[in-house]
Design a protein around this nucleic acid. Structure first.
Lengths: 126, 126
DNA sequence: CTTGACCTTGACGTTGATGTCAAGGTTTAT
DNA sequence: ATAAACCTTGACATCAACGTCAAGGTCAAG
């Protein structure tokens, strides 16, 4: 299939596909006229990329997952490098959550100082 | 005082101060030679901006706080517009936290699928 | 043969808060 | 008088993942 069809099927823009290729995440055969030609495998790769991006991974993070799929594994996450990324990401997410919780508390405290009674109560505590 | 001193005292770069001015957050008198001249009030304004940025506010968010200080209030957060920003920010932070918690769960689930036993246990559950 | 739907590469725009140079004027001290 | 340490404006660079336009080649249908 050509780039337009892959884009439709994967739910991404053609621009995104070319960008992934430029970043070395996917590759494409070229037909005689220079058009990119993709197979079903590529759809799988792009889907993997999208689902990773959707949970906050970067394209860089996605690299080992794609490599893992291309190596023939059924799950992009089943290779050691992917597992390492998973674990690093979990740690990063936990960090961000902690940061946000701290910030939330600071902002709420400031708001309380500036305007006692202005802080919205959390549900469940009437 | 001139920009260099204010920068040192506030712990920011001169570039940042000029940027804040460009964005209309702070202003400066000019001495005969064209140099910016600041007073103690400006140090207070810049400090307010920095503490807001530190908890994730944008310069845009900081605007009403600065205006509030300039209007003579002791706390930048004590004006209605500032309170509104506080509340919007709290809502945004809560949103982000929810998003991150969801993502964390998704990533952990993926990792578990790809590599059962790889998910780090949270402390306290041996 | 031409319209229209494809495709190509290339390159600038987006977002926020600066960093970093460039090229030059001012002031203070020696 | 000259170096050192200030200051000025202006403008491009950064980070990510594309969006968007430009200018043009390709191909099937009518």
């Amino acid at each position: 299939m050509r780039i337009g069809e892959l884009a439709r099927r994967a739910g991404v823009s053609t621009r995104a596909l070319r960008y992934y290729e430029q970043q070395g995440l996917i590759t494409a055969r070229r037909s005689a006229n220079g058009y990119r030609e993709y197979g079903e495998t590529d759809l799988r790769l792009v889907s993997e990329i999208r689902s990773l991006l959707a949970v906050g991974f970067t394209l860089e993070d996605a690299r080992p997952f794609v490599a893992c799929l291309r190596a023939g594994h059924a799950l992009g996450g089943s290779c050691p490098e992917s597992v390492a990324v998973y674990q690093r990401k979990l740690a990063e997410i936990d960090d961000e959550i902690r940061t946000l919780l701290t910030r939330r508390a600071e902002v709420a405290a400031q708001l309380t100082t500036a305007c006692p009674g202005c802080v919205l109560r959390k549900a469940g505590k009437p």
